[in-house]
Simulated assay, not measured.
Amino acid sequence: MMKERLTIAMDGPAGSGKSTIAQRLAEKLDYLYLNSGSMYRAMTLLSIREGGDSTNVPMLTKLAKSCRIDFLDNGKTTLLNGEDVSDSLRTPEIDRAIVDIAKTPEVRHEMVKQQRRIGEKGGIIVEGRDVTTVVFPDADLKFYINASVEERAKRRFAEQKTRGIETTLEQVEKEIRDRDQMDESREHSPLRTAEDAIVIDTTSMTINQAVDFVLNRVEVG
């Protein structure tokens, strides 16, 4: 029998499928989906609006402390200070600037506080790159979602094509490798696999197969 109002945490690198898996799982369980990556993207958008200096730590810290980020519709809608910014978060400009912002300890500290605020009552699926190890180390269930770099690049390239973003598969793969290196080597909250996480390689899986696999693990506890 599945316990009510679980806290389910998912980590993994860019393009592994964790966002889609988490979102679909949230819909099936009627849980809130919290995309920590969207939090950092919203912070990046805010910094761009305020002048675009992603290395200005005092400014970033002030913005992180004063802003409020929330999610609606099982995580499909991201609110930045009450404004729906969902359609503005996945652009090449944000992709480039988010690297500096996501590794800023002061920003991460404030985003962790916001994530814990949102998830304090359970009934939540939160995904990102440090949610199983830093944000919710005591989550009821932890998953680490992965896939090969080549497969992740194909997925991200296809996503960007559908959004009308001009790029190449080679460029997307380079960006993913660079992002992996940054995520895994940063001093604060690096991407790593929690010891008690269930590891899922989605390289050869369809999204439906991956969702069913996770859902089965959730239901059996």
Rank of each mutant, 00 (worst) to 15 (best):
G82I: 02
D140A: 10
T203E: 06
G37M: 02
K113A: 12
E195H: 03
I124C: 02
N81C: 03
H109L: 08
H109Q: 08
M1C: 08
I145V: 15
L63I: 11
S47P: 00
T132E: 00
N35V: 06
P58Q: 07
D196E: 09
R186N: 03
P105Q: 05
L34I: 14
G122F: 06
D140E: 13
L63G: 06
N216V: 00
E4L: 07
V99H: 09
R152S: 11
D100R: 01
D11N: 08
Q209N: 04
S86W: 08
A139V: 05
G122V: 02
G52N: 09
F143D: 13
K3V: 13
E170A: 13
A64E: 09
T77A: 05
D183A: 09
S16G: 13
E175A: 12
M2T: 15
K28Y: 07
A22R: 04
R96P: 02
V135N: 01
R192H: 05
K65A: 13
Y33G: 03
M205C: 09
E187I: 05
F143V: 13
A210S: 15
R177F: 01
V112M: 11
T104M: 14
D73G: 01
A14N: 09
V172W: 01
T104E: 12
F213M: 08
M43C: 07
A26S: 11
L25C: 01
R152T: 09
R217P: 03
S47G: 01
S185V: 10
D70P: 04
Q181N: 11
F143M: 12
T168E: 08
R24K: 05
A9Y: 00
K65P: 09
E127M: 12
E219C: 13
V126W: 07
R117M: 10
D87N: 15
V126A: 11
D130L: 04
V131F: 10
V135S: 00
I21T: 00
E83P: 11
I48T: 11
G17R: 02
N208H: 11
S86I: 14
T61V: 03
R217K: 15
R41L: 13
A64C: 12
I124M: 03
E219D: 10
A64Y: 10
N35W: 11
Q115Y: 12
P13A: 13
